[in-house]
């Protein structure tokens, strides 16, 4: 067990350390996420229908917290894909570490990236939206942890399914954009229910990013109440995605 934990820690540490190396990616991602709040939301605030969204800047700040965490946790997929193309995974597979520790370490590494990256946006939300109470703070921390863990696992499992660069990127982009757009980050669920067919509204409402964004909106005080199913759904998403991802990743790694 001690060996397992040590290997897991070392693998996670390797991914977290490397996060800083992609300065260009971080800078671009930060610019995009910040621009969504300080430019897009601020300007659009003058145009949005107040009946739906009383304050679009606050609405978007909490939403951006969800997509920032998602995007940074999801970014681990890019590297895992790169490693598979360069056959760096052969090196990882040859190391004296159990396969399960390898998978767990990578999921945790990706999750830690998400958590580290979201810190700046938590500060932004504290300044722009409000300060959470102790229960809300716990809910935010719980959601962040599970959400980033499940998104990191999802990215890793998807990208390890193929060694073809084009396919890897297409899968990643497809999932990224689907999760990104089919969420309530940019538009409230009430509007989705009004303008889109029922099943689509349900998909958007129960999507992992939507659920995380909802917890954040309630946590920082933008919403007064929280759907009682939001936190259980965040947990459920995490369990399902982690289980599937662990299976897929270990199978894909040792497929040869």
């Amino acid at each position: 067990m001690k060996d397992f934990i040590k290997a897991c820690f070392l693998v996670a540490y390797r991914d977290l350390r490397r996060f800083w190396k992609f300065k260009h990616w971080l800078a671009a991602q930060l610019a995009m996420n910040l621009a969504d709040v300080v430019i897009f939301a601020l300007v659009l605030n003058n145009m949005v229908n107040r009946d739906y969204i009383p304050d679009y800047v606050k609405f978007m700040s909490t939403g951006v917290l969800a997509i920032a965490t998602f995007a940074s946790a999801f970014s681990i997929g890019r590297e895992v894909g790169g490693e598979m193309r360069r056959e760096v995974h052969h090196y990882l597979l040859s190391l004296p570490a159990p396969r399960a520790a390898l998978a767990a370490g990578r999921f945790i590494g990706g999750a830690l990236r998400g958590l580290v990256y979201q810190l700046a946006f938590i500060v932004l939300n504290l300044l722009v939206v409000g300060v959470p109470g102790p229960v809300q703070a716990l809910a935010i921390a719980y959601t962040s942890l599970l959400f980033s863990l499940s998104m990191s696992a999802l990215a890793i499992a998807v990208v390890s399914s193929t060694r073809d660069f084009n396919l890897q990127s297409t899968f990643r982009a497809l999932i990224y954009y689907t999760l990104f757009f089919f969420s309530n980050v940019f538009y409230p669920k009430e509007l989705i229910s009004l303008r889109f067919p029922g099943p689509l509204a349900a998909v958007v409402t129960h999507a992992p990013i939507s659920r995380a964004a909802e917890v954040y909106r309630w946590g920082f005080g933008y919403y007064q109440s929280l759907d009682p199913m939001a936190l259980p759904e965040v947990t459920l998403w995490a369990i399902i995605l982690l289980a599937v991802a662990a299976l897929l990743y270990t199978r894909n790694l040792s497929r040869q």
Binding site: V48, N49, N166, T170, A173, F181
Partner: peptide
């Protein structure tokens, strides 16, 4: 890959994002 990625982005933009945004703004 790039083509596929952008086509997905474009499709979601014109079907979902743009429609939702147009419903949201005055």
């Amino acid at each position: 890959m790039f083509v596929a990625m952008r086509v997905v982005w474009f499709a979601l933009q014109v079907t979902l994002f743009a429609l939702a945004l147009s419903a949201m703004v005055r």
